[in-house]
């Protein structure tokens, strides 16, 4: 059923978009690829497992708890892995990348110890509720995921373009030094960005739990890598690109599972990167600069 597959693809794609937004925000402001973003996302999902399955609380509590936990993780990431490198003389541009790889490995293995390996069921009261229109089956949870994603993206766009803090963030992304001369507290903005991006990762974690009903420690890595693929696809630091890239990848993966070989699903993201780098290295929505990439 093509239409049903499209709905599945859009659901998956909107989660990808949320994950990619977390990457894009941090890259836009700091010029850093946060390799730990996938693991922070995975922690969000596990918080969801604990709240819904272990404690038996409602799903909105899971969102709240995941946001809090991942925001704290984001703050710690900024404080201990990124801030010490900033403004230090002679630090290679690769240092923050390596440092966040360190955080990702640490968090992934910490989750093994805290939660145990393997799949953990994610309970969700309305997981099975669905309705049919003609021959198409739609699950309520798909609609919920889609609506939450869209609301989140709209809220972020509004916040970035209309609020004072959002404008400060964009100014910082444009040029950190200029923003700081103009009186923006860039350190605060940077911390805010990383915390916010992480909290969005946490929300995406719960959404994935709702969509697949199962959570495991490895999903951080695979989601993280896909998020990276999406931001290269959409254009680094580009908010619209992250959203569109997420949807494209979600649809492409769903379609290949439905009509092709499901085993290669995880390779699509990277084949897409390689193709895009060859044809349009600045990404679908990125702007071409005369100097190539920074």
């Amino acid at each position: 059923m093509l239409l049903e597959q499209l709905i599945n693809g859009i659901t998956l794609g909107s989660i990808y978009a949320i994950v990619a937004l977390g990457f894009t925000l941090v890259f836009g402001v700091l010029g850093i690829i946060n390799m730990a973003h996938g693991e922070i996302f995975m922690f969000g999902a596990f918080v969801g497992v604990m709240v819904t399955s272990t404690l038996g609380w409602p799903i909105w509590m899971a969102f709240l708890a995941a946001i809090i936990v991942t925001a704290i993780l984001g703050y710690m990431l900024e404080r201990f892995a990124l801030r010490p490198l900033r403004g230090k003389k002679g630090v290679s541009h690769l240092a923050p990348l390596i440092s966040t790889i360190g955080v990702s490995i640490l968090l992934e293995n910490l989750s093994h110890h805290l939660f145990g390996a393997g799949n953990h069921p994610f309970k969700n009261a309305f997981a099975e509720i669905h309705f049919t229109i003609g021959s198409i089956t739609i699950y309520v949870v798909q609609i919920v995921i889609f609506v939450i994603s869209v609301v989140l993206m709209m809220a972020l766009s509004y916040w970035l373009s209309k609020t004072r803090a959002g404008k400060a963030l964009r100014a910082t992304a444009e040029n950190l030094d200029t923003a700081s001369i103009l009186g923006v507290n860039t350190r605060q903005i940077i911390t805010l960005t990383v915390v916010m991006a992480s909290a969005m990762g946490g929300i995406a974690g719960i959404l994935v739990g709702m969509a697949f009903n199962s959570v495991n420690p490895q999903m951080g890595l695979s989601m993280g890598l896909k998020g990276l693929a999406i931001i290269i696809l959409g254009g680094m630091g580009n908010v619209k690109g992250a959203m569109a890239g997420g949807l494209i990848l979600g649809l492409a993966e769903t379609l290949i599972v439905a009509y092709g070989d499901s085993g290669y699903r995880d390779a699509i993201a990277f084949l897409a990167i390689i193709v895009i780098l060859l044809i349009r290295p600045q990404g679908l929505f990125g702007q071409k600069t005369s100097e190539g990439r920074p």
Binding site: L94, L97, L225, L228, I232, A267, I274, L277, G292
Partner: peptide
């Protein structure tokens, strides 16, 4: 040859992605 048009972090990610593609294959 295509990847080296990229610098720094882009190269790191493209090569990381390449490793994943190999593993999937």
């Amino acid at each position: 040859i295509p990847s080296l048009r990229l610098t720094g972090v882009y190269l790191a990610i493209a090569t990381l992605g390449f490793g994943e593609v190999i593993r999937v294959f």
